[in-house]
């Protein structure tokens, strides 16, 4: 797997398959990026489970917060890592102890740990690094185009609607305008 450039099909496949997502590092503060992503994915119908040891036992947007992955009493499909890159390996190791273990490890925008990714892939998990599932959902559904973002997709098919001001992930699209310079910078910074 080339972790510098994921195909739209790979990302869409993951977001269309997973149903339960544990977000490690979810914050209850409504101005934090993790809160934004958590709330958006919850509104899109995912079962969202916050993991944050500092707030275990409290609730976030109606969802109970757990201290660690192993405390979650139900199977999870994907772990979304909202922690610094250096913590990702320990989180993958913890995820591998779950039975059944999750199918997907997703590391947030700015988070990349190739050792953690290799371990997850060696155990049959799919891995996404340095991306945000909210942004990817918005991009592939085309919702994010409402705020002028280059979705890097093109389509001549009428896109399905997911509700009022909501688009669906099940949209057919071809690759669109590339962002080569931004991608190059992102690679350089994740190497540092």
């Amino acid at each position: 797997m080339n972790h510098d450039a994921y195909s739209d099909g790979y990302i869409r496949g993951i977001l269309n398959t997973v149903k339960t997502i544990a977000m490690v590092g979810a914050s209850e503060r409504d101005n934090r990026p993790s809160y934004f992503a958590f709330k958006y994915l919850l509104e899109r119908g995912y079962r969202m489970i916050p993991v944050n040891p500092g707030h275990a036992g409290e609730t976030m947007l109606g969802q109970k917060i757990y201290a660690r992955l192993s405390d979650i009493p139900e199977p999870i499909d994907m772990v979304d890592i909202f922690r610094a890159s250096k913590h990702a390996l320990a989180i993958v190791q913890e995820a591998l102890l779950l039975k059944p273990h999750p199918q997907v490890i997703w590391m947030q925008l700015g988070v990349r740990n190739d050792e953690a990714a290799a371990l997850a892939e060696a155990n049959g998990m799919k891995v996404v690094m340095n991306r945000c599932p909210k942004i990817e959902y918005g991009r592939l559904s085309s919702e994010i185009a409402w705020i002028g973002v280059n979705t890097r997709t093109l389509s001549a098919k009428r896109p399905p609607i997911g509700g009022l001001q909501r688009m669906s992930l099940n949209r057919s699209s071809a690759p669109g305008g590339a962002t080569a310079a931004a991608d190059r910078v992102q690679r350089q910074e994740s190497d540092q």
Binding site: I147, V149, N150, G177, A178, T179, A182
Partner: peptide, 12 residues
């Protein structure tokens, strides 16, 4: 989005 795509930028 169109001008951003033509310029190779992330957003317009």
């Amino acid at each position: 989005e169109r001008v951003a795509a033509l310029e190779g930028g992330t957003a317009g």
